Amino acid sequence: MATEAFEEIVEDFEFLEDWEDRYRYVIEQGKDMDALDDALKVPATKVDGCASQVWLHATIEGGVLTFDGESDAMIVNGLIAVLRKLYNGLSLAEVLAVDARGELERLGLNEHLSSQRSNGLRAMIERVRLIASGG
């Protein structure tokens, strides 16, 4: 149950056979995001469990989740962009129903991220799920 935007990433990854190209693609996704306003980089939006600095700021309007984020690491910015494409625009119930691990496995990210990056990615997913569950 992925968004159309996420399906586009999956399709793009199918054309990029070399992992280095995929890595660059993820970084480019992050570079295409707008910077998070410094006023939103506060302890409440900081994600614990990430090796780098990560902030996620979510809004819920009409039961639909959207979030922005930023990191001080280029690859993590890219991972935030991928997660935004996975979740943004979904209802809260849909966010909670997404098998993020399964969807991200379609990209092969788990095999190519360091354990610290994988832990950080899990922490970001958990933060999005916590927000969607009202926590």
Rank of each mutant, 00 (worst) to 15 (best):
R106T: 03
G89K: 01
S71K: 07
L16P: 05
T66S: 13
Y87I: 13
I60N: 06
L40R: 12
C50I: 03
E70H: 09
T59Y: 00
Q116H: 13
R117G: 04
H57V: 04
G120V: 14
L16M: 15
L16Y: 05
E105G: 04
R22P: 03
E14S: 15
G63F: 10
G63C: 10
A73N: 01
V95D: 00
N119K: 12
E14H: 14
G135C: 05
Q29H: 04
I131S: 01
E8W: 06
R24D: 15
A93G: 07
L92P: 07
V128S: 01
Y25C: 06
V54N: 01
G30F: 05
V42T: 15
V64F: 02
C50Y: 00
V47W: 07
H112G: 06
R106E: 13
S71T: 10
D48V: 12
D34L: 10
L90D: 01
A51G: 09
C50T: 09
W19S: 07
A5Y: 01
M33I: 08
D37W: 08
R101E: 15
G69S: 05
E7R: 12
V26N: 02
M74I: 04
V42C: 06
G69N: 04
E105Y: 05
S91K: 08
E8C: 02
L121Y: 03
A81F: 01
N110H: 13
L107F: 08
T3F: 00
E111D: 14
H57I: 04
I27D: 07
L40W: 06
V26I: 15
L86H: 02
E11S: 09
Q29W: 03
E17D: 11
G69A: 07
W19K: 09
H57G: 00
M1R: 02
L109D: 06
R122K: 14
V64T: 14
L121M: 10
T66P: 00
D38K: 14
G108R: 11
G69F: 09
I9A: 03
S71D: 10
D99S: 06
V128C: 03
D99T: 10
R117H: 11
D18A: 13
E4F: 08
I27T: 09
I27P: 09
G49A: 06
D72F: 11
M74F: 12
A97T: 11
R22F: 08
Q116E: 12
E103Q: 07
A44K: 14
E105N: 12
R101F: 09
K46E: 15
G30M: 01
L40I: 05
E111A: 15
